[in-house]
């Protein structure tokens, strides 16, 4: 690929790292207004909603049902209080079974 590739890689690394690094170092030790800290503490839960939907339905192109079964399986295993690994491996297992035999 040559030197152009490495320049591109350097640029990609830089623009990926900067948004990850700036808030953690610049906001370090600053006291933010309660409304702002409230909003920031909401972000993990909001981001999970946005990351899951609608992408989960499109994990297999053109097969909406596949993603739906996966999402429902994961939800059911999780709601019964099982841990991360059980949810992840259990969902993979159910979908492996589904794609082998359905």
């Amino acid at each position: 690929m040559g030197p152009t590739y490495w320049w591109m890689l350097f640029g990609m690394a830089l623009v990926t790292y900067i948004p990850r690094m700036i808030p953690l170092t610049v906001l370090d030790g600053r006291k933010l207004p309660p409304l702002v800290t409230g909003i920031l503490s909401n972000i993990p839960f909001a981001v999970l909603g946005a990351l899951i939907f609608p992408a989960v339905f499109y994990v297999q192109e053109g097969n909406f049902l596949f993603g739906l079964i996966g999402a429902v399986t994961a939800f059911l295993i999780a709601i019964f209080g099982f841990g991360l690994m059980t949810v992840v491996l259990g969902t993979i297992g159910v979908l492996a079974f589904y794609s082998l035999f359905m």
Partner: peptide
């Protein structure tokens, strides 16, 4: 996605 659901 299963991981995200398990976290949420």
């Amino acid at each position: 996605y299963a991981l995200f659901i398990a976290l949420l």
